[in-house]
Amino acid sequence: MRKIHRTDVKAEIVREPGAKDALHRKLIDTPDGADRFVLTEFELSPNGSTPPHYHDWEHEIYIIEGSMGLVMPEQNLTEQVGPGDVVFIPRNEAHGFVTGTDQTCRFLVVAPCERPPVRNFFLSDDPYEYTQLPEYANSLGDK
């Protein structure tokens, strides 16, 4: 068994193509002994985003606090989600997340450890960008 507090895990900048003002903490990962699923906490600052993308594995998502838009490019739709909302994204379904000027969001993502050949398809060629720390990100580099 392993018990930690989320702030004991280093928050890292999301460095995927087109990501903006997004952090993630790998709360449970393969080095911890996970052999089926990993648990990652994401934090988006105002005007933050993870760009639309798709991959060969599913996601289960739980919104902890704040709100954001769930971008579904195939449906040409962005749906607002907030605390307590649960989202299931099937494999190969394009999705992304975006916060507005006055929004922040913290959410959990469950994904499989052993993924099919790792193929993320990002629908953006823009470089990632990180310009600000969310108010609730109390430790970026010390832990």
Rank of each mutant, 00 (worst) to 15 (best):
M1Y: 06
M1H: 10
M1L: 10
K3M: 13
H5S: 14
D8S: 09
D8Y: 01
V9L: 04
V9D: 00
E12H: 03
I13D: 00
E16D: 09
E16S: 11
G18L: 01
G18I: 02
D21H: 13
D21A: 10
D21W: 04
L23P: 00
R25F: 00
R25I: 01
L27C: 04
L27I: 08
D29G: 12
T30L: 08
T30N: 09
P31K: 11
D32K: 04
D32G: 08
A34Y: 06
A34Q: 09
F37H: 11
F37N: 10
V38W: 01
T40A: 06
T40P: 01
T40Y: 03
F42Q: 01
F42M: 04
F42S: 00
F42W: 02
L44I: 09
P46V: 13
G48R: 05
T50I: 13
T50E: 10
P51A: 15
P51K: 01
H53R: 06
H53K: 03
H55Q: 10
D56I: 04
D56N: 12
W57N: 05
W57T: 06
E58S: 14
I61S: 06
E65W: 02
E65I: 05
E65S: 15
G66T: 07
S67W: 02
S67E: 10
S67A: 14
G69I: 01
L70P: 00
E74A: 14
E74S: 13
T78Q: 08
Q80E: 12
G82N: 06
V86Y: 14
I89H: 00
P90E: 14
N92D: 08
A94E: 05
G96D: 01
C105I: 00
C105G: 02
R106F: 03
F107A: 02
F107C: 01
L108D: 04
V110N: 09
A111G: 06
A111T: 09
C113Q: 10
E114N: 14
E114K: 15
R115P: 04
P116Y: 03
P116S: 14
P117A: 09
R119I: 12
N120Y: 11
F121S: 12
F122R: 08
F122N: 11
L123Q: 09
D126S: 12
P127Q: 03
P127G: 07
P127V: 05
Y128K: 05
E129I: 12
E129K: 14
Q132K: 15
L133T: 10
L133S: 11
E135H: 15
Y136A: 14
Y136L: 14
N138D: 11
N138R: 12
S139G: 07
L140V: 13
G141Q: 11
G141V: 10
K143E: 12
